[in-house]
Amino acid sequence: MIKWFSKWHGVVFVATLLTLLTGLWLVLSAPADYQQGDAVRILYIHVPAAKMSLLSYLFLTVASGMYLWRRQEPWDILAEASVSVGAAFTALTLASGSIWGKPMWGAWWAWDARLTSMLVLLILFMGLMALRNALEDPHKAARATAVLAIIGAVDLPIIHYSVVWWRTLHQPPSFAGPAKQTITGDLLPPLLVMSVAFILLGAWLLMVKSREVAARRAWETLETERLEQSHG
């Protein structure tokens, strides 16, 4: 798997760059919103980033489940990499949402359902990183983070719905299907291209991060062997 990543990450990088540039060009040439003005352009980054942070968590859950089932290290490498990628997208989502929220809502932050769930998601990603760093034994760390990822996967919907019941002032979703389409035709192409660009970006980041994780683990194994030899 890592070999395959090493071979193809360059191609994915070029594809990401081209799609991202096309997307940005479309975003900048799209008409400004009659209510939101130019601030609406932030949403072309915010919405794909939000989808990618959830997708990263979904991927993490699958990788963690597969690791617990099969106990094969590549699944754990993918899990570790997807935590970092997911944390980056979640942070981007929160930051871009805040920048958009200030002119639109008059506040950087509101305790609405989706914002609160996203913040909890970010803390969860941080917790997963902290847990892995805090456990010495790599097998134990792999198992513990996999279990925590699955607990989080169960908890996130409960968190989301409990905060929805608690309070909500966020806009209804924009991708809700043709019946409830709330976005005009002009704005859809840049959003779609940006979504594709972010999926590619996520894939590329995952490949690069997985290579880094695999390389670090290989180095750590070598280091342990070297220490054992020099003592023995």
Binding site: T116, V120, I123, L124, M126, G127, A130, L131, A134, L135, E136, D137, K140, A144, V147, L148, I151, G152, D155, I158, I159, Y161, S162, V163, W165, W166
Partner: peptide, 28 residues
């Protein structure tokens, strides 16, 4: 979570970091 963090470094901080966000629905 206590079982998960039992052998971790600075486990009590870690336990709080993991437990507090996950119990958000319970608290609400």
């Amino acid at each position: 979570l206590a079982a998960m963090t039992q052998t971790a470094r600075s486990r009590e901080t870690l336990l709080a970091l993991l437990l507090l966000p996950l119990t958000a629905p319970l608290l609400i």
